[in-house]
């Protein structure tokens, strides 16, 4: 846990420095129209960097409770990745799959792998939910969501 704390601190300070560099491309001092566009981002980046540094130093100081535990318990990795990786995959292919088909695939995978449902329930649920969502968003609220190449072709012949 302490190591994660330190690593987090390092990452945060690095992030602040990246933002600081981006802020320095702007006028940070007084301009004809008052404080420049970079004035606030610059000082905020400095503040974030300082606060990050304080957190980092705190994590290196000896702590009263030395209980060392893993940041992510070993048995938790699998359930976490089962949520995360397919999601990243669906987003990566969202232009092809669209949100409805992608969502259906995600449901199939999760229900089978984690829920261990029978195939019948998997197919019914992962078919019905995207269908209901489609009618709510596409038909009722007229919110255009990414439909993907297949659905575009079926619906509009594009």
């Amino acid at each position: 846990m302490r190591k994660a704390e330190t690593a987090g601190g390092v990452l945060l300070v690095l992030f602040a420095l990246v933002m600081l560099r981006e802020a320095l491309r702007l006028p940070i001092g007084w301009t004809v129209s008052g404080p420049g566009a970079g004035f606030v981002p610059f000082w905020l980046s400095v503040g974030v960097a300082v606060a990050g540094a304080v957190i980092l130093i705190q994590s290196l100081l000896p702590a009263p409770s030395a209980a060392e535990e893993a940041f992510i318990p070993a048995q938790a990795w699998k359930p976490l990745l089962v949520v995360f990786l397919p999601m990243a995959a669906v987003i990566a292919f969202i232009n092809v799959l669209g949100i409805y088909l992608g969502g259906a695939l995600y449901l199939v995978g999760y229900m089978r792998l984690v829920g261990r449902f029978r195939w019948l329930s998997v197919v019914v649920v992962s078919g019905l939910i995207p269908l209901v969502l489609f009618f709510i968003f596409e038909k009722w609220f007229l919110l255009p969501l990414p439909k993907g190449v297949f659905l575009e072709r079926i619906l509009y012949g594009r």
Binding site: M87, Y106, L107, V114, G115, L133, F137, P144, L145, P146
Partner: peptide
């Protein structure tokens, strides 16, 4: 069951996030 609820929340979250600005 959580096996349905978790992916459903993930899908709803994605729709909510996408719909605010329409960008991937």
């Amino acid at each position: 069951p959580f096996g349905i609820l978790a992916p459903l929340i993930v899908i709803m979250s994605s729709i909510g996030a996408y719909a605010t600005n329409n960008q991937v």
